[in-house]
Amino acid sequence: MSVSYMTHPLIKHKITLIRRETTGTNEFRKIIEEIAMLMGYEALADLPTTDVEVKTPIETTIQPVIDGKKLAVVPILRAGLGMVNGILALVPSAKVGHIGLYRDPETHQPHEYYCKLPDSIEERQIVVVDPMLATGDSAVDTVTMIKQHGGKKIKFMSIIAAPEGVSALMKAHPDIQLYVGCLDRQLNENAYICPGLGDAGDRIFGTI
């Protein structure tokens, strides 16, 4: 459907902070959540609403609430877990699924080891989260799995992306909406994003 690149100065500022190799695990983890919340605010701007009757201390009025089945947040394990709480801060009633993929260190290809999605996934607005969109292979496989389970309305949020990953994901799944915090220059020979921020999972969980 489309690719949206974030332009808000707060998002840009916070991405700079997590790029620094001196940013410790606790600070890195908190900022990842903050960026996810800021990006989520943008990505969820088109959520459908319906009107309900509400009684205020003054009078009865008709006001909007989110319509239909609630949101489903699906992090790609493990780094995607760092973004979940940022989305839940906006929509606490959202359901959370998990998709586990690991990257082969030699081929850089993703391999699935876990998939658990909320019920009625076909009726939900799904937001897939992963801090890094590098080659795009994991992202493509994740969206494919969700579609195979019946998911239809899919948004993908990534804090930092390489042009190669954006191209691969949108070529494979042109019907989704992609939200990118910052588009970096390229991938290096080890399929890491440059300038990037290193391994997001290691930095979130302190396993460097």
Rank of each mutant, 00 (worst) to 15 (best):
L169S: 00
I121G: 06
R124D: 03
I121K: 11
Y192N: 08
T144K: 15
L183Q: 07
G80I: 04
Q125E: 14
G198M: 07
V180R: 06
A168F: 05
S158M: 04
G206W: 11
D137M: 06
G150R: 14
G150D: 13
R78H: 00
K116C: 11
C115W: 00
A172M: 03
H173Q: 01
A161H: 12
L183D: 00
Y179M: 09
N188L: 09
L133Q: 07
D119P: 12
P163T: 06
P195E: 06
G80V: 05
A191M: 15
G150N: 14
Y102K: 14
N190L: 01
L133R: 06
Q125V: 14
I154C: 02
L88M: 12
G201T: 06
M132L: 15
V73P: 01
V127M: 15
P174E: 00
Y114V: 10
V91G: 02
N85V: 07
S138W: 03
D202K: 07
P174S: 00
L88T: 10
L81A: 03
S138C: 00
Q177F: 08
A200K: 06
R103P: 09
A191P: 00
V166P: 05
P163H: 11
V73Y: 09
V128C: 01
E122S: 14
E164P: 03
G100N: 15
A172F: 00
Q186E: 15
V84H: 09
I176A: 02
I76N: 05
G181M: 02
G206N: 09
K152M: 13
K155Q: 13
L90K: 07
A72P: 05
D175H: 02
E189Q: 15
E123K: 08
L88Y: 11
D202V: 04
L101C: 08
